[in-house]
């Protein structure tokens, strides 16, 4: 049943990447730059969850809501006080990239100073992440409840919001052409603030799941940005579903690498794929 186990791992990794890529795609399409500080929201989610759930012993759901709000606010404030100002000045993408790298670097350093550089496990007891047997293969409870059940629900509800609600229409109009959107009376600034908040919450959700599953370190923010960017680029950054497609392609490629070359080469896989992809099809697999 080893093959089935591999499939389960692939799906669970693919799901986490999908979640991250979806959130990242929202800001990427609306402001058109690679917002690396997304990784900061990932960290804020994970560490605030640790703070409330494990250190303060607050119940799971309230802690979850608090940490999602915190990570959403993190990106919202980053947009309001940093990126918005630069975008209004018509700063080049390079400037925005540098700033977002700086923000992530500072965030992970600050969290490192507060919580230490060791892996911080959010779960209270090891028994909380019991291993569950599924037809002879195993996954832990976090991977099942978080990855296999909640992420698909989140993504489907996001798709609903995006394609069926007024907010979603406004978001898509801004993605198409933010100036035209403004002309037809869409409150661009308000929508962008909401988009960043939403995007931050999704990153935070990723951080929380990671913290519950294997623990979070200050470097995780950056480490998880890598597959996120790569998934979005290979899937097609103009498309909502592209990031998810890219996420699973990446997860499969990584799993294959583990089988063939061993686990330690996994980190290089996204980038080999990324470079090849930039070569042959820079616009990604799916167009809008």
């Amino acid at each position: 049943m080893e093959f089935f186990q591999l499939i389960l791992y692939t799906i669970s990794t693919g799901m986490l990447y999908s979640l991250l890529a979806t959130g990242f795609g929202f800001t990427l399409r609306s402001v058109k730059f690679f917002n690396i500080s997304y990784g900061g929201a990932f960290l804020v989610g994970g560490y605030v969850m640790f703070l409330f759930y494990r250190m303060q012993n607050i119940a799971f759901l309230p802690s979850l809501l608090l940490s999602l709000t915190a990570s959403g606010l993190y990106l919202l404030l980053a947009y309001k006080f940093i990126f918005k100002i630069l975008i209004e000045r018509k700063a080049k993408n390079l400037v925005l990239l540098i700033v977002s790298f700086g923000l992530l670097t500072a965030t992970s350093a600050i969290l490192g100073m507060i919580f230490g550089s060791q892996a911080t496990i959010v779960t209270r007891h090891l028994s909380d992440i019991d291993v569950v047997n599924i037809f002879g293969a195993t996954l832990n409870t976090v991977q099942i409840v978080g990855g296999l059940i909640s992420i698909p629900i989140i993504i489907l509800s996001l798709a609903y919001v995006r394609y069926k609600t007024r907010f979603g229409r406004a978001v898509r109009a801004i993605e198409d052409d933010s100036e035209v959107a403004e002309l037809v009376g869409i409150p661009k600034n308000k929508i962008l603030l909401k988009t960043f908040f939403l995007s931050g919450m999704l990153a935070g959700m990723g951080g929380i799941l990671e913290g519950l599953d294997v623990g979070i370190i200050p470097a995780s923010g950056f480490l998880y940005m890598l597959p996120t960017i790569v998934a979005v680029v290979i899937g097609g950054m103009q498309s909502f579903w592209g990031g998810i497609l890219g996420a699973f392609i990446l997860a499969i490629a990584q799993q294959l690498t583990i089988v063939v070359f061993g686990g330690s080469w996994v980190q290089a896989v996204p980038f080999v794929i990324l470079i090849i992809m930039l070569w042959i099809r820079p616009e990604g697999i799916l167009k809008r």
């Binding site: 940093i82 700033v99 700086g102 670097t105 500072a106 965030t107 100073m113």
Partner: peptide, 23 residues
């Protein structure tokens, strides 16, 4: 170790602040 993290924090914030106020 802490000094290292503080430096990391400083240069991260420097990038943000410089780009905003003194590019």
């Amino acid at each position: 170790e802490f000094a290292g993290l503080m430096r990391q924090c400083i240069y991260g914030l420097l990038l943000v602040l410089l780009m905003l106020y003194q590019p």
